[in-house]
Design a protein around this nucleic acid. Structure first.
Length: 441
RNA sequence: CGGGACGUAGCGCAGUCUGGUAGCGCAUCACACUGGGGGUGUGGGGGUCGCAGGUUCGAAUCCUGCCGUCCCGACCA
């Protein structure tokens, strides 16, 4: 993408409503603009990041055997009356009336919709298990939206739902998601801590929150340092094998948020107890027949009897992750994206627009990077001497190539890595290798 | 939902107390000079001062109501 064509406006000063660092940087780097309280427009750069995060989530869901669907944002009140939640959910649910006075709602979650679909479409035990997910906008009318996209009212969530014949099957489905979540966060450069959790209004008796560590996180987190040293499952993980041992490795260690942490009863030795701050970015539940029973989600078993399905649900706050990653990875100059979610991998900076050598070299590098499939932002604006560098840093481009007359005289350009800020020179005649390395990584 | 604050150009702010028809920095536009880390100079453009009433010869400024936004607490992907 050429900078001159990109819709991007960065801010030198911080809008006064933004209090936390991720919100400030998202506004300053031109990722989002607020439309109403807790509701945001995603601008091109921010949308690229959001979509990259969604894609990682999608790949790990698919790998773990879940299938993608897309459910509506607007749901019928009738469906929610069926589960008894229409009256229970409270003011967080945005209720809508259409022209025929039918009651609708903007979905805060989708247990009812998916259970209704499964109830009507699946009738044999032979069609189970199933795990369906979607990545869809949700709306929860929070009393007090804040922290930008970290606690918006409208947010993008990956939510999925597993359907099994019995509890053992449901726990296996739960374990798949548990491990898939660890992989998902790790791919975004995040350290995630799974933590036993209350099940809240969704109900059930097995639940974990996934908290990622960030200095500016909302809540304090206490855990055994052994937990942080565990290896994330590799991409060769066999999700059909017995996963319980693997999951137990993670759940065996102590982990608690400040509400639950009690120094009196915590049995972790002081020297191993890690105190950090964290942000909740995922939550998984096993809740049995809480929805399948009232909504009639049953199948016929081998013996001819009807079996009520055992269910679980699993959520990842996709839009929240954008803010969470920034909280976990930034410096005074701006965002430091992990390469896996960066809006562009490489930035090309033309230090002297109008200089024939600089222009031609930049155009060639830009074309070569594109041909190699490397996502590149080419700063071809040529305005102030400093502003363009600053934008690359603010927006968090992982690799920055600086092309100027001084270096070209010696056949060199400068390479800067955003994380750490190391600079080095690279000769033009070996730049092809450098590009090839970016293409394969 | 309880407590607090704010709303003046895209962003950050001054002006409000003490009423006289709007200003500063950044951004933006033009030109020139520049170019190796938030350029320099000169000259421009942009605001029914959140909205609606009221008081007054005159309201950004005083009064009333409404709307919006943020912060602290109780609640959450």
């Amino acid at each position: 993408m050429r900078r001159t064509r990109l819709f991007l406006s960065t801010l030198k000063e911080t809008p006064s409503e933004a209090q936390i660092v991720s919100h400030r940087l998202m506004l300053r780097a031109g990722l989002v603009r607020q439309s109403a309280s807790g509701i945001y427009t995603w601008l091109p750069t921010g949308l690229r990041v959001l979509q990259k995060i969604a894609q990682i989530v999608r790949e790990e869901q698919d790998r773990a055997g879940a299938q993608e669907v897309l459910m509506p944002t607007i749901q019928s009140a009738e469906l929610w009356r069926g589960s008894g939640r229409y009256d229970d959910y409270g003011k967080e649910m945005l209720r809508i009336t259409d022209r025929h006075d039918r009651e609708l709602l903007y979905g805060p979650t989708a247990e009812e919709v998916i259970t209704d679909i499964v109830a009507s479409e699946i009738s044999s035990y032979r069609d189970l298990p199933k795990n369906l997910y979607n990545i869809q906008w949700k709306f929860r009318d929070e009393v007090r939206p804040r922290f930008g996209v970290m606690r918006g009212r409208e947010f993008l969530m990956k939510d999925n739902y597993s359907f099994d014949l019995d509890k053992a099957g449901a726990v296996h489905s739960y374990n798949k998601m548990f491990l898939a979540y660890l992989r998902t966060y790790a791919r975004m450069g995040l350290k995630a801590v799974p933590m036993a959790a209350d099940t809240g209004p969704i109900g059930g008796d097995l639940s974990h929150e996934f908290i990622i560590l960030a200095e500016t996180g909302e809540s304090a987190v206490f855990c055994d340092e052994a937990l942080l040293a565990l290896d994330t499952p590799g991409d060769d993980i066999d999700y059909e094998s017995d996963l319980q041992g693997l999951v137990d490795q993670w759940t065996a260690h102590y982990a608690a948020t400040d509400e639950k942490h009690d120094p009196e009863t915590c049995d972790v030795p002081a020297e191993r107890l890690v105190t950090a701050r964290g942000i909740e970015v995922g939550h998984i539940f096993y809740f049995g027949t809480k929805y399948s029973a009232p909504l009639g989600a049953t199948v016929q078993g081998a013996d001819g009897q009807q079996i009520t399905l055992e269910m679980g649900s699993y959520g990842i706050g996709v839009s929240r992750l954008v803010g969470a990653i920034i909280e976990a990875s930034h410096d005074d100059n701006g965002i430091i994206w992990p390469e896996s979610v960066a809006p562009w991998t490489v930035g090309v900076i033309n230090l002297k627009v109008g200089d024939a050598d600089c222009d031609a070299t930049c155009e060639k590098i830009y074309a070569d990077l594109q041909a190699a499939g490397v996502e590149v932002l080419y700063d071809d604006r040529g305005e102030r001497a400093g502003g363009k560098f600053a934008d690359m840093d603010l927006v968090g481009i992982p690799w920055q190539l600086m092309v100027g007359p001084r270096g070209l005289k010696d056949g060199k350009i400068e390479v800067k890595q955003r994380a750490g800020g190391e600079k080095s020179e690279i000769a033009l005649n070996v730049l092809g290798d450098w590009i090839a390395a970016r293409a394969t990584s």
